[in-house]
Design a protein around this nucleic acid. Structure first.
Lengths: 217, 217, 217, 217
DNA sequence: GATGAATGAGGTTTCATTCAT
DNA sequence: GATGAATGAAACCTCATTCAT
């Protein structure tokens, strides 16, 4: 019966959503260390066992959150990269926008991202698993890939300095990770500068650092 | 008795050194997660209780390691900043050198630094404590302060673009943290680029991003 | 309707067979500890709930397996006992054959048998239930009963030493259980002797131990 | 200080004894399945963590119990074997006595032994560990070894039938395991025969089965 | 009758810290 | 000051069984 199947599927997605919300809230409030399966279950309003019906374990929950979380940013970057490759957008401007998008995505999801980074450091098995995840549709893969495509176009067009685009992408990636960590500290840590100030400054410096000098003249 | 006091002091410093070595080794080999008071004690060759005679707790050990660890980098940066302020060195060149120094210090101590960053995220109490540590002689304070002084001189001299030096410092700090994390992963993660490639590329991009355009012409 | 009933009955027996196969395979491959209702259902290709429509619980599945499993051995021993009582077979020779049959049945079903024994030790309720099962057609009852009848005939005829046949039967039973455990270990545990060597030696020793001395002369 | 060391050592042995008693009691009353570290700790009157200060884990507790448990039997059999080899005892009589000793040891420790056997089946790692334990002083090794020595002497002297002593030892070992299981059932299971009846009958049958016929004449 | 999501008690182990010696 | 046994909260994960559909 189609109906009962649809019902069931709906129920499942309700539970899955509840688990997602609970997971994000938990990560936000307590970080990866405070993220326990017990709390997750309680917060989502289900039994501990139920969580294990949806996920293989703690690491699996993380992957799920990561995926959902990166989707918006991934889509935005992908469309940007597509437009650049189609010649509809200037690579340098697109890079600025991409950094903007990435940074604000970082800000929105800072807690989750910090927790994720933490989890990877904690558990090498996660890392291995992530690496093996080559699915080109995975948000994280898409994000890095799109950034790389924009950089490649920029270098090709001469708008950016001559760097190995892959290297530049790695630098941006690692810089963003650092930013994520900073943002997650939720801490007007640095000389009283706000997080947004730092974010935008970071974007500017990176962009400036990659832009070809002559291009401006 | 003076003698017995000196003896005691010597013994204490021996123990403290042993604890330092053990802590660094442990962090390097097992990361923050694997860093337990039991292992620390065993590795230093003392009893668990003894560790608690020297440190208030796990967090305190970390602070100690952090302090000792940053000393070399702190001194190098401080002398650089002093020379810049004394007009003996060009701010832009000094900035490049400072980034170099910071990056290589980062590489040398990547495990410790990653663990430290992790610990801060884990335990908000540590953060509070760090913030309250305003001792100007503390290596971490010195490092960030020296970098700031170099940046200020650079902006003042017109060699660098007009940015809020405090903001630029914050950006560099957070970038370095991101790099630290990447380095600690010990993982030719990014498109097969080596860690050193990324490190030097990062330095170049930042430097380039902060340098005034006309200055080069 | 007769037809639909027959259909249902057929379906039921198909499911039951699938469950039997799955249960045996599972016990063989994973032992009692690895035997979970979930795996059983998955392996039989039915839902977990369905298993509970066929059996009261984990213990009940076991009984079913036990029953089916012992049938061949039970029939062989029963016909042996019948022939002995009908005077068509020599009790001592029959005993030897019976031990052979029992031993090889033990070997064939060693995994199942070991698991069953384990389950009984785990769960006293099973034991109580087994004891209450006096159904003379139950394979396990038949097996022990047939062995007892052969022994009684042997003692009566003077071919065996004068022992209480019930005691001898108990001894054989418990010996077989020990053998089952050994066989299930799948382990050339004992001084490098093969399992078959031990099986046949055990048979010989028991038989020799029960045979009247003079009888041989 | 010797005194404080001795005190500490005493305290330790008190705790260890308490743990031993608790473990044995628990195994007796609840079997291996009911044997949990929590119960063990509670019963011994210590914290769960303390148990882990004394033992590496559940398996380790088992080994300890096993060792202590088999000591008496091991010593008795060893002295028997020594006397036989020294020509001070008749091998056949010694075998009878050895079986007696083993049987009654089995009876005394039936619960522990059954649990141990169970644990081995549950956890292959234990088996591997046991196999690797070739320490000739380990009670279990001593027991099997002594029995083997007696059998060898018996076969050599002609008092026993010509069997491979190692095979005979394996048969006895497995028989004893079966007996242990039976005894642990605590169940006047078999035709209403008492456990002692079965034990002694088993001894007799085995002995009879191994004894050379002519020897009696 | 079949389904399979939900339940939740229960198991093992870790480790920061205390405190009597 | 050094010691290290004891503590116990807390984490992760399993699985027999139920029950609404």
């Amino acid at each position: 019966m189609k109906l009962s199947e649809r019902k069931r599927s709906l129920m499942e997605s309700v539970t899955r959503d509840a688990l997602y919300e609970a997971a994000v809230g938990l990560l936000r409030e307590e970080g990866w260390k405070g993220f326990t399966m017990g709390k997750l279950a309680a917060r989502a309003g289900v039994a501990k066992g139920t969580v294990y019906n949806y996920f293989d374990g703690k690491g699996d929950v993380l992957f799920f959150v990561m995926e959902r979380n990166g989707m918006r940013t991934a889509e935005a970057l992908k469309s940007l990269a597509d437009r650049v490759e189609a010649g509809e957008a200037d690579p340098v401007e697109a890079l600025g926008e991409a950094l903007q998008v990435a940074t604000s995505g970082m800000y929105r999801n800072r807690h989750v991202i910090a927790a994720i980074a933490r989890a990877f450091e904690d558990d090498p098995r996660l890392l291995a698993r992530k690496r093996s995840c080559q699915d080109p549709k995975h948000p994280l893969v898409t994000i890095r890939d799109s950034m790389l495509r924009i950089l490649e176009a920029g270098v090709r067009s001469g708008g950016l300095v001559e760097v190995d685009p892959r290297g530049a992408e790695a630098v941006i990636h690692c810089t963003m990770m650092g930013l994520g960590r900073l943002l997650a500290m939720e801490d007007r840590d640095s000389h009283g500068m706000g997080q947004e100030d730092i974010s935008s400054l970071l974007t500017r410096i990176i962009l400036h650092g990659l832009r070809r000098r002559g291009a401006e003249l």
